[in-house]
Lab assay of single mutants.
Amino acid sequence: GKMTGIVKWFNADKGFGFITPDDGSKDVFVHFSAIQNDGYKSSDEGQKVSFTIESGAKGPAAGNVTSL
């Protein structure tokens, strides 16, 4: 299901970062391709987002990331 969290950091040059879930669980990796914004796929530190957890090649990753 959908979770909410805060972007801990995001490196636009490398195209990835981490989200800290609101439920206190482990930080989740986020790749720019998962960000659902139109246009520039980046996110700012401290941005509140909703997301799903997908199982990626390197473990859990955020999917369907949407700014709230």
Rank of each mutant, 00 (worst) to 15 (best):
D38Y: 14
S55R: 12
N37H: 12
S55M: 15
T20W: 05
G39T: 10
N37K: 12
K58V: 07
T20A: 10
D23T: 05
T66R: 12
F10C: 06
F16S: 01
V7W: 10
I35W: 15
H31Q: 04
Q47D: 11
G17E: 01
E54T: 13
S67P: 14
V30T: 02
G17F: 07
G59I: 04
I19K: 00
G17L: 05
A61D: 03
K2V: 12
K26E: 12
F18P: 00
S43Q: 10
K58C: 14
S55E: 13
D44V: 15
S25R: 06
K48W: 13
S67M: 15
Q36I: 13
A57M: 12
V7L: 13
G56A: 08
S33I: 05
K41P: 10
A34P: 03
V7E: 01
I35F: 15
H31D: 04
S67T: 12
G15A: 03
T20P: 02
G46F: 11
D27E: 08
Q47E: 10
F16K: 00
G56D: 08
G46I: 09
V28S: 00
D23F: 06
S43L: 15
K58I: 08
V28P: 00
P21S: 04
W9N: 01
K26F: 08
Y40F: 14
P21M: 04
I53E: 00
I19G: 00
N64T: 06
M3Q: 09
L68M: 10
F10T: 01
T4P: 01
V7M: 12
I35K: 03
W9A: 00
V7A: 00
F18R: 01
V7G: 01
T20F: 05
F18W: 10
D44K: 15
N37S: 13
F16C: 05
D38T: 12
I6E: 04
G1W: 08
F10G: 00
M3R: 10
V30W: 08
K41Q: 10
D13G: 10
L68Q: 06
D13W: 12
H31K: 03
V49Q: 00
V65G: 02
K48A: 11
S67K: 14
K48R: 14
E54L: 13
G1K: 14
V28L: 09
K8L: 06
K48F: 09
S25D: 07
G1R: 13
V65A: 03
L68F: 08
I6W: 10
D13L: 14
T66A: 08
L68A: 07
V65I: 05
S25W: 04
I19D: 00
L68H: 06
G15D: 01
K2Q: 09
F18N: 00
T4I: 08
S42Y: 13
L68T: 07
A57V: 13
S33E: 04
G63L: 13
Q47I: 11
K26I: 09
Q47C: 14
A62C: 05
D22A: 06
F29C: 06
N64G: 06
G63R: 14
G17Y: 08
T52C: 09
K26C: 11
K8C: 09
G39V: 11
K14V: 08
H31L: 07
G24P: 02
A62W: 03
V49E: 01
D38R: 10
G15S: 03
F29W: 07
G56W: 11
D23E: 04
W9Y: 07
I19E: 00
D27P: 07
Y40G: 11
I6L: 06
G1C: 14
V28I: 12
K2G: 06
V49W: 04
S55V: 14
T52A: 03
I6K: 10
N37G: 14
D13R: 13
F32D: 02
A12N: 09
F51S: 00
S67H: 14
F10E: 00
N11Y: 04
S43G: 11
S67Q: 11
V49A: 00
A61Q: 15
F16G: 00
E45S: 15
K26G: 12
T4Q: 06
I19V: 03
K41H: 12
G24R: 04
G63E: 08
A12S: 11
V65Y: 01
N11C: 11
F51A: 01
F18Y: 08
D38H: 12
S33T: 12
T4F: 09
V7Q: 02
I53Y: 10
D44S: 15
S50Q: 08
S67N: 12
K48E: 06
G59L: 04
F32S: 09
S50W: 08
D22M: 07
A34C: 08
D27I: 06
S33F: 06
F16E: 02
S50K: 05
A12W: 15
V49L: 03
F10K: 00
F29I: 03
D22H: 05
P21Q: 02
F51D: 00
K14W: 12
A57S: 11
D44A: 15
K8M: 04
A12E: 08
L68D: 05
I53T: 03
G24D: 03
T66M: 11
T52P: 01
I53L: 11
Y40V: 11
V28T: 02
E45N: 13
K48L: 10
G15P: 01
V65E: 01
A62D: 02
I53F: 06
M3V: 09
K8N: 03
G46E: 05
V30R: 00
F51N: 00
I53Q: 03
F51C: 03
W9G: 02
V65D: 02
D23P: 02
K8V: 07
S55G: 08
K2T: 11
T52H: 07
S67F: 15
F10R: 00
P60Q: 09
Y40R: 09
K41E: 08
D23H: 06
K58D: 07
N64S: 08
H31I: 06
F51K: 00
K14T: 06
A12L: 10
D38A: 13
H31Y: 08
K26M: 10
G46T: 07
I19Q: 00
V65K: 02
G24H: 05
G59C: 08
A12Y: 13
Q36L: 13
T66Y: 08
K14F: 09
F18K: 01
D27R: 04
G5L: 06
K26W: 07
D27S: 05
S25E: 05
D22S: 08
P60M: 10
A34R: 06
N37M: 14
N11I: 03
T20Q: 10
F18A: 01
F29K: 02
A34Q: 11
G17H: 01
G39C: 13
F29V: 01
P21G: 02
P21V: 04
F32V: 12
N11H: 07
A62S: 02
G39W: 14
W9Q: 01
T20Y: 05
E54M: 13
G1E: 11
F10Q: 01
E54I: 15
D38I: 13
F32H: 10
Y40D: 08
A61M: 15
V30P: 00
K48S: 07
Q36G: 08
G15L: 04
H31W: 09
S33A: 07
F10V: 03
A61I: 15
K58P: 06
W9V: 02
A61L: 12
F10W: 14
S25F: 04
K58M: 10
K14G: 05
I35H: 03
G63W: 13
I6N: 04
M3A: 06
T20I: 12
G63V: 14
G1D: 10
F32P: 02
G24V: 02
N11R: 08
I53C: 08
E45V: 15
A34G: 06
S50L: 08
K26Q: 13
K2S: 08
G39I: 11
N37P: 11
F18I: 04
I35S: 03
S42T: 14
V28R: 00
T52G: 02
Q36V: 13
F29P: 00
K2W: 11
D38K: 12
D44H: 15
W9E: 02
S43H: 12
N37C: 15
F18D: 00
M3G: 03
I35C: 12
A34N: 08
A34S: 10
S42R: 11
Y40Q: 09
G24N: 06
D44Y: 15
Q36P: 07
H31G: 04
M3W: 08
S33L: 08
N37Q: 13
A61K: 14
S50T: 09
G46N: 09
S42A: 12
D22C: 14
A61P: 02
T4M: 07
D22Y: 05
I35A: 03
F10N: 00
A57F: 12
A57H: 11
D44F: 15
A12G: 07
Q36C: 14
G24C: 08
M3D: 01
I19P: 01
N64P: 02
G63S: 13
S55D: 12
A57I: 12
S55Q: 14
G15E: 02
F29D: 01
S25H: 06
K8A: 06
I6C: 11
F32N: 06
D23A: 04
S50I: 09
T20V: 12
I6P: 00
Y40K: 09
V7C: 11
L68V: 10
S33W: 08
Y40T: 09
W9K: 00
K14E: 04
D13E: 14
F29S: 00
V28D: 00
A12F: 12
A34M: 06
Q36H: 10
H31M: 05
G15I: 06
Q47K: 09
G1S: 11
T20M: 10
P21F: 05
K14A: 08
I53A: 02
N11E: 03
T4S: 07
N64I: 06
T20D: 02
Q47S: 12
T20K: 13
P60I: 12
S25N: 06
S55Y: 15
Q36N: 11
S25G: 13
K58Y: 14
K14Y: 09
I6S: 07
S50R: 07
